[in-house]
Design a protein around this nucleic acid. Structure first.
Length: 763
DNA sequence: TGTGAGTTGATTTTT
DNA sequence: TCAACTCACA
């Protein structure tokens, strides 16, 4: 046997060697998924598949880099394209930009740029938008795009004021983007999906070019990504997807769990491989995770088979206050590190929301323990970095109005809000970009003489900078920084913040220099900006760093640590209060806890407190209902009432500390509860249950309505919760027609056919 | 136009 | 708690 297969288990080997046809790899946590993917690629290469025919799509650059690295060591010198969906789409779109009305030098807006643009769009359409925040509108638009609903197909659900606003703002937002020759993250996907849908030639070309497509973390794909993947795996359905429905934690970003749950329906000839062995965690940790997740309904039944020994009991700890919680954890870290039992990098603290990190930072700092926070304020998101990048963006794409407004008065040049508004009114009248409008400022009557001079000076500055456009990035950046006076603004200041900003800018220049070295072919500006937009990932998280890691549960996905502390497992925090009334969202929160638990290799502490200071005020904290989903009899309970009943989870308010307010009341919850999927477009009368149907609807096709008489005994059917099953018997008729279905995973269930979401499995 | 005090309102965030 | 935004004044 060749060495690519030698070290694999039989299940892993199945997944690696199955090359032709659709493949679904259900990979539990710690099951060696990355190994399987990389070995699969290496195996294909060994079998003579050309590297150009393989496409591997991931969600993060980090995952892609890691895979590329590992494939490289297995199969040297055969470069396979591996990267994120967004990068793949960006590259594709560069070469076909004109087809969607863009120029090839389009700018990719990040979340912040997009939000600014939404604000501008709101200003144009809404007289009084007081009732809905730009943030909500942005989210609704993003939601629509993730569901492949373009602005012309957007229909608000009836009676939703937010929906009505979105209906007006969405097209204007698209206009602004187009006028600026810019796209947002979601557009990258939407444009490519549109191209594939509208041009069968492009679709067939790509389908043909990429004979073997792999998608990692398939449970996180949204409908638009689904459309892309399906389109390029049509004639050559050699599509392998890996994922774990239990680790889907990005539903709020539009991830569609149905994609993975119904993969078998989309590709009936699919081969399913389950990787259930867990090589990461102790048996006890696996068991806790397994019991917890079994409380979810929308999933594929799966157990974690522990391959490690029993290990230490998982601890469930109640502390009096958040401070005590943090102190206890910090003390334990100090004790174990001092005793030489553990290194600092063995420890990780996970919390649901960033705002909770403070106490832990304080506790660690007080003890002199180094720590790192993952994904705090990202480098590229910093104001000073975004400003400098905006100068570069404007140089690369002069039509970028967003970049223009960002920097036109930074450092201050006497061009204020009023001038900018007048300039922008002029630009709109003449249908030109702001930079061109600036060149005409002198002839705009409403603009005062003094302001016009200031604007003209800025235009002149721009032209001077533009002369350096073909310089190396390092030189261009230096030119920008000195000519604009931007760097001096911070250097001349004594404030320590400003000094730090100046240092960050120096770091940016260094990044530019490195980029120059890596891309000696010149024309690096566009590529550098694309990198800056899509490679947010300066991932300062270094495994090797000798320090404790603090991060959100979301950030923890894909990582592992010997010792894990999951803190603040309390009602209103995990699950977050807004998930409260929506069972799907509660399940997602439960999966989040599942992800956290399964990161732990040896030791796991789950904790909550009785009073927590949060957002300034102290509250009695209620233990999370998820704690009741844990096998508490088999866990070590610490800090519970010493009355012998191990029921410290029953809520008692005796322990309310001084200064604590009353616990959350129902009214408070109701007031904060957001509507489900705000701005989600209205769906037709039929219940759309499968991804394929949703896609058809999004694309404006009529959805085949399943009438109850298309069912018959013996037919294979699919159900959103119970998945695949077979009709054993049918009784009654018309609206009262009932079917008894035997589900593969869930056994027999009975349905009223006219009401049920059952659908026949297409063959 | 630019600045300081006051108000408000808060998840998670692969790209 | 804290940062982002508004509004009044210099």
């Amino acid at each position: 046997m060749n060495d690519v297969l030698a070290t694999l288990t039989s299940a892993q080997r199945d997944a690696v060697t199955f090359m032709d046809g659709p493949l679904l790899i259900l990979a539990g946590p710690g099951s060696g998924k990355t190994r399987v993917i990389t070995h699969r690629v290496a195996h294909m290469l060994q079998q003579g598949v050309s590297p150009q025919q393989i496409l591997a799509l991931t969600f993060t650059n980090k995952a892609a880099d890691e895979m590329r690295e590992r494939v490289r060591s297995l199969a040297p010198r055969q470069e396979v394209w591996m990267g994120t969906f967004h990068r793949f789409c960006a590259q594709l779109l560069r070469s076909r930009a004109e087809m969607v009305g863009l120029a090839p030098n389009f700018t990719i807006y990040d979340a912040d740029d997009s939000l600014r643009t939404v604000k501008r769009a709101i200003k144009e359409t809404e007289k009084d938008a007081g009732f809905c925040s730009p943030d909500q509108v942005m989210r609704a638009i993003s939601w629509a795009k993730n569901n492949f609903i373009t602005h012309d197909r957007y229909k608000p659900s009836s009676g939703s004021p937010l929906g009505e606003t979105v209906k007006r703002v969405y097209p204007v937002y698209q206009d602004l983007l187009l006028a600026s020759n810019a796209v947002d993250f979601d557009d990258l996907l939407v444009y490519v999906a549109t191209l594939l849908k509208e041009s069968d030639e492009i679709r067939a070309d790509l389908d043909d070019a990429y004979r073997y497509v792999m998608v990692d973390e398939y449970q996180d794909t949204n409908l638009t990504q689904y459309a892309i993947v399906r389109a390029i795996s049509h004639h050559h359905p050699n599509l392998a997807v890996t994922g774990d429905p239990d680790q889907s934690i990005y539903g709020w970003r539009g991830a569609n769990l149905s994609n993975i749950l119904e993969f078998e329906n989309d590709y009936p000839s699919v081969r399913v491989v389950r990787l259930e062995d867990n090589y990461r965690s102790t048996a006890r940790i696996c068991h806790v995770a397994d019991v917890l997740i079994s409380h979810n309904t929308r999933r594929k039944e799966k157990t974690l088979i522990a391959r490690q020994g029993g290990g230490r009991q998982v601890r469930l700890i109640r502390y009096a206050t958040h401070r005590e919680e943090a102190d206890a954890i910090a003390d334990r870290v100090v004790a174990e590190a001092a005793a030489g039992k553990r290194r600092l990098c063995d420890f990780a603290v996970f919390y649901r929301i960033n705002a909770l990190s403070r106490v832990f930072e304080d506790a660690l700092r007080a003890r002199g323990v180094p720590y790192q926070i993952v994904s705090g304020v990202e480098f590229w998101q910093r104001k000073e970095i975004k400003d400098v990048v905006a100068y570069l963006q404007l140089l690369c794409n002069p039509r970028d109005d967003n970049a223009f407004s960002r920097i036109v008065n930074v450092p201050t040049r006497g061009i204020g809000k009023t001038t900018l508004e007048r300039l922008s009114a002029h630009a709109r009248r003449r249908r030109i970009c702001l930079l061109d409008a600036a060149r005409e400022a002198g002839v705009v009557e409403s603009i005062s003489k003094r302001s016009a001079v200031a604007v003209a000076k800025f235009a002149a500055l721009y032209d001077r900078l533009a002369e350096g456009i073909s310089l190396s990035l390092e030189k261009l950046m230096t030119l920008v920084l000195t000519e604009s006076g931007y760097l001096a603004m911070y250097q001349d200041s004594d404030a320590p913040d400003d000094q730090e900003r100046a240092a960050n800018i120096t770091e940016l220049v260094t990044a530019g220099r490195e980029f120059d070295v890596e891309h000696p072919d010149g024309s690096g500006l566009e590529a550098f900006l694309e990198q800056a937009a899509l490679v947010n990932d300066v991932d300062d998280w270094e495994e090797e760093n000798e320090c404790v890691t603090l991060m959100t549960l979301h950030a923890a996905k894909g990582l592992e640590f010997p010792v894990v502390f999951i803190v603040a497992v309390e009602q209103g925090i995990l699950p977050v209060e807004r998930a409260r009334d929506d069972e799907d969202r509660v399940e997602e929160e439960r999966r989040l806890l599942f992800v956290g638990i399964t990161r732990a290799k040896e030791d796991l502490d789950i904790s909550f407190v009785r009073t927590r200071q949060f957002r300034g005020s102290s509250r009695v904290a209620i233990p999370s209902p998820f704690l009741e989903n844990l096998p508490r009899d088999e866990m070590e309970l610490v800090g519970f009432a010493a009355n012998g009943r191990n029921d410290g989870l029953t809520i008692d308010y005796d322990g309310a500390q001084d200064g604590a307010d009353a616990p959350w009341t129902d009214e408070e919850f109701d007031q904060t509860a957001a509507p489900v999927n705000p701005g989600m477009p209205q769906l037709p009368g039929v219940q759309l249950t499968t991804a394929a149907d949703m896609l058809a609807f999004a694309e404006g096709k009529s959805v085949s309505q399943s009438s109850s008489d298309e069912f018959e005994t013996g037919m294979a059917v699919i159900h959103p919760e119970y998945h695949i099953g077979k009709i054993v018997s049918i009784s009654g008729s018309g609206a009262k027609r009932m079917a008894t279905v035997n589900f593969v995973e869930y056994g027999q269930k009975r349905f009223l056919l006219s009401k049920s979401p059952l659908r026949p499995v297409r063959r």
